[in-house]
Simulated assay, not measured.
Amino acid sequence: MEHLNRTLSALADPTRRAIVARLAEGEATVSQLVDRFALTQPTISSHLKVLEAAGLISRSRVGQTRPCRLDPAGLKMLADWLADYERFWTDTLDRFVEQAEGASPTPTAGDADEDA
């Protein structure tokens, strides 16, 4: 559960969500992210550390660069957790629709005048 808490906390920040969205397009270096978001290198690096600790991204070293990419394992854990709630809402919505379809409409004041 601690890993899930770190993941949700990391995604609570709009800049980190935007970084994740950018990395969904493909790998990017820290410099490319700095240019994209017009933030300082230390700020981007700080966000990346949080995302990495949450297991959402991984970084490698290629020469002087540190390319970042989404980590499918971290995203799968989150997707699996959300899937449990999706089933809950789908089941709840299905029951609601079934109940609504089985209920007779409640007459309104205007309906009573039409019958007279």
Score class of each variant (00 low, 15 high):
His3Tyr: 05
His3Lys: 12
Leu4Gln: 10
Arg6Trp: 07
Ala10Lys: 11
Ala10Ser: 10
Asp13Trp: 07
Pro14Phe: 00
Thr15Trp: 12
Thr15Ser: 10
Arg16His: 06
Arg17Gly: 01
Arg17Asp: 00
Ile19Gln: 08
Ile19Met: 13
Ile19Cys: 06
Ile19His: 07
Val20Met: 13
Ala21Phe: 09
Arg22Cys: 12
Glu25Asp: 15
Gly26Asp: 09
Gly26Lys: 12
Thr29Gly: 09
Val30Gln: 08
Ser31Tyr: 00
Leu33Tyr: 08
Asp35Phe: 03
Asp35Glu: 15
Arg36Trp: 05
Arg36Lys: 13
Arg36Met: 05
Arg36His: 15
Phe37Thr: 06
Ala38Arg: 15
Leu39Thr: 01
Thr40Pro: 03
Gln41Met: 04
Gln41Leu: 02
Pro42Gln: 04
Pro42Trp: 03
Thr43Phe: 03
Ile44Trp: 04
Ser45Tyr: 03
Ser46Gln: 14
His47Ala: 05
His47Phe: 01
Leu48Ala: 06
Lys49His: 08
Lys49Cys: 02
Lys49Asn: 11
Lys49Met: 05
Lys49Gly: 13
Ala53Ser: 07
Ala54Phe: 06
Ile57Leu: 06
Ser58Leu: 04
Arg59Ile: 00
Arg61Phe: 00
Arg61Gly: 00
Val62Met: 00
Val62Cys: 00
Val62Pro: 00
Arg66Val: 02
Arg66Asp: 02
Pro67Asn: 03
Arg69Gln: 12
Arg69Thr: 09
Leu70Gly: 04
Pro72Cys: 00
Pro72Lys: 03
Ala73Leu: 13
Ala73Asp: 13
Gly74Thr: 09
Gly74Leu: 04
Lys76Gly: 05
Met77Thr: 15
Leu78Ile: 06
Leu78Gln: 00
Leu78Cys: 04
Ala79Asp: 14
Asp80Gly: 09
Asp80Ser: 14
Trp81Arg: 14
Leu82Tyr: 12
Asp84Phe: 10
Tyr85Trp: 15
Glu86Asn: 12
Arg87His: 15
Arg87Pro: 02
Arg87Glu: 07
Phe88Pro: 01
Trp89Ser: 06
Thr90Arg: 14
Thr92Val: 09
Thr92Arg: 15
Leu93Arg: 15
Asp94Phe: 12
Arg95Ile: 06
Arg95Ser: 08
Phe96Pro: 01
Val97Met: 13
Val97Ala: 10
Glu98Asn: 11
Glu98Gln: 14
Ala100Asp: 05
Ala100Ile: 02
Glu101Lys: 10
Gly102His: 15
Gly102Phe: 07
Pro105Val: 13
Thr106Ile: 14
Thr106Met: 11
Ala109Pro: 10
Ala109Tyr: 10
Gly110Asp: 11
Asp111Val: 08
Asp111Leu: 07
Asp111Pro: 08
Asp111Met: 12
Ala112Gln: 13
Ala112Pro: 03
Asp113Pro: 10
Glu114Ser: 13
Ala116Asp: 10
